[in-house]
Design a protein around this nucleic acid. Structure first.
Lengths: 342, 342
DNA sequence: ATCCGATATGTTAGCGCTATCATGTTAGCG
DNA sequence: CGCTAACATGATAGCGCTAACATATCGGAT
């Protein structure tokens, strides 16, 4: 009852073969098998072949959890976005994913739903997975989160907007984008304009664009009223147009916070028989394909979202591989697309 | 030189406090601290409070890698999709994510880019992370992948389409959806129709819809030609319309494989001054919002993508928590949305 | 007084892998 | 022919946590 007690403690988790078993099958030690798989150039070619053969034969799947614990490194990259419903973030994620996956990193995706407390919890969890780097959409975090990030020695990349980043930063200047569109509207002779956004507390970057917009109009001695909607999307854009016409009957142009709203409004204007841009001009932001397929084409601002993800990933990888990053901060810029809707 | 040799082996990975340190600070053993965090009801309330206080004070972040290794369980759910560019998968992922995140599971997202070999590699990697369950979009896998899945005792959920699943299955019948739209077109009096899809080798579900479409038309003694495009998207839809008119001048209706193509074609028809549906009828698939905002509204088939994700996640969670799944297979169905485009 | 089960906590031994140091073994050189 | 550097492999000791078993305490039933 006592001399095989140590045996009763056994708790092999699965029936999966372990590295030790592969090593035995190949007639080498565990560490050699490990090297054959992870540092092929440190092992004799024939030995490696024997190990790989054993791996194949036994159907060995490396236990990455154990490997990460032993090496205190995982190839996880934490990516935290405020929403998946917005195609803008999806495109950035795509750019990140392609680049990271090609280098053998795995993305851990977190969705805060615009909740900063949730962001804190996600970051804690991801740090618990000893991720190699952290990428967050945006520069705004709560107190707890900032503390966590400050005490963290991993690369931290903040994307989407430009500003005082903790570490690395790839984005664009949203205030300037707002100014850019406002100047365009002024040039086109629009004096009575309205900015329409949705849930600006969460989508504070849209709020920044509004600030830019307002700045330009106020400099021109004009007012820049704001209409905030409860929801986003095409329906909301249509509803926003109706509210705008009802509440601001003299308005000549609407600067929407994004192309979804703008496209919804534009298509609704067609249904209502309102001439765009003669009766009402419409502008958006993002440069989504749909905006360039409607008639009249939507005037909007295109941001290089996919490229933003790629660039962010590339810089993080440079840092992780010990190379110098090219720049701590990258302004990816934006492009005014002038359609016929203004 | 020899009696502190054991000390030189030290290799604390980070400066992060460990559970042991938290336990010491709280005056309990490591296991009690572990229980205080993971099984609160097994620990005296006062003890737990002391542990939590120590956690807070030291800024302890649990090492989930170590926890997973020790318990041979991670709260990872592997989710494998063929593309992120397609909003359809995004919506399913959203449904999955909301449901899993609420239960404390973390999604590991893999993107195969329609490459089955890549799918195999991803599944291997995810198994290496001892994920709790595997969710794949689709029922088609390569040989190696099927072997891996067959030898895997974790819940496996195959989503999107209905068929002979290995384990769990939530989806809809794409062939039937193709038939449904074909019947609708016939009812509307369209005899000369064309099916247009993009990259059908990858998007084989669109191929299944075409099969359903063809079946109905051939039963009616009509032909059902197919036009395959190199790319998807709005542009491709517009180009597809032009090709259809050039190559099949007598065609009266086009059944597009999805709403992106269909909407691109519909908006292009407007630009060309072609009356929809009088000159050419247009139908799609997916039921995207944009299709319901154009004039005429697009006739399409709506699939409950978000609900599909939720349901799949719910069933997997039931399985993981030892409850009986409600059904091994769920047909989430679809809904014909009749717009004015047909 | 004794035994029992419920509750609370502790001791020990891993989970499967890799960092670190140690040990051969061979080639290259004066 | 010995010495060194480069290469190849191995033994050992963890990484930080939790499963499994062990122990202690206590109120209540016997």
């Amino acid at each position: 009852m006592s001399n095989d007690a140590h045996n009763s403690r056994r708790r092999r988790s699965t029936e999966q073969p372990t590295l030790k078993e592969v090593a035995d099958a190949a007639g080498v030690s565990a560490i050699t098998a490990s090297r054959a798989l992870n540092r092929p150039d440190q092992v004799n070619e024939l030995t490696r072949a024997r190990v790989l053969e054993a791996v194949e034969r036994l159907g060995y799947v490396p236990n990455l959890v154990a490997g990460s614990l032993a090496s205190a490194r995982s190839r996880f990259i934490a990516v935290i976005v405020p929403s998946l419903a917005n195609s803008v973030f999806i495109e950035v994620i795509q750019g990140l994913q392609e680049t990271f996956e090609a280098q053998g990193y795995q993305i851990l995706l977190g969705n805060t739903e615009y909740d900063l407390e949730r962001e804190y919890q996600l970051i804690r969890t991801f740090l618990g997975w000893s991720c190699s780097a952290l990428i967050t959409a945006g520069l705004r975090h709560n107190e707890a989160c900032r503390t966590l990030l400050a005490n963290c020695d991993k690369p931290i990349m903040e994307v989407m907007e430009l500003g005082e980043a903790r570490d690395l930063n790839v984005g664009l200047d949203h205030t300037e984008a707002g100014r850019c569109m406002a100047r365009h509207l002024l040039e086109r002779g629009h004096r009575q304009t309205l900015f329409i956004g949705a849930r600006l507390a969460g989508d504070y970057r849209a709020g920044m664009r509004y600030e830019g917009h307002r700045e330009i109009f106020e400099q021109a001695g004009l007012t820049a009223p704001l209409l905030e909607l409860e929801r986003g999307g095409l329906d909301a854009g249509a509803a926003g147009l109706e509210r705008a016409l009802a509440e601001h009957p003299d308005i000549g142009a609407i600067h929407f916070a994004n192309d979804d709203l703008a496209t919804g409004a534009l298509l609704h204007a067609q249904r209502l028989g309102l001439a765009v841009p003669q009766r009402i001009a419409i502008a958006g932001f993002n440069g989504l394909p749909i905006g360039q397929h409607v008639t009249p084409r939507l005037t909007t601002i295109r941001s290089p979202r996919h490229a933003m993800g790629e660039l962010a990933a590339t810089e993080v990888i440079r840092r992780l591989e010990g190379q110098r990053v090219l720049r701590r901060q990258h302004d990816v810029g934006f492009e005014l697309l002038v359609g016929e809707s203004t």
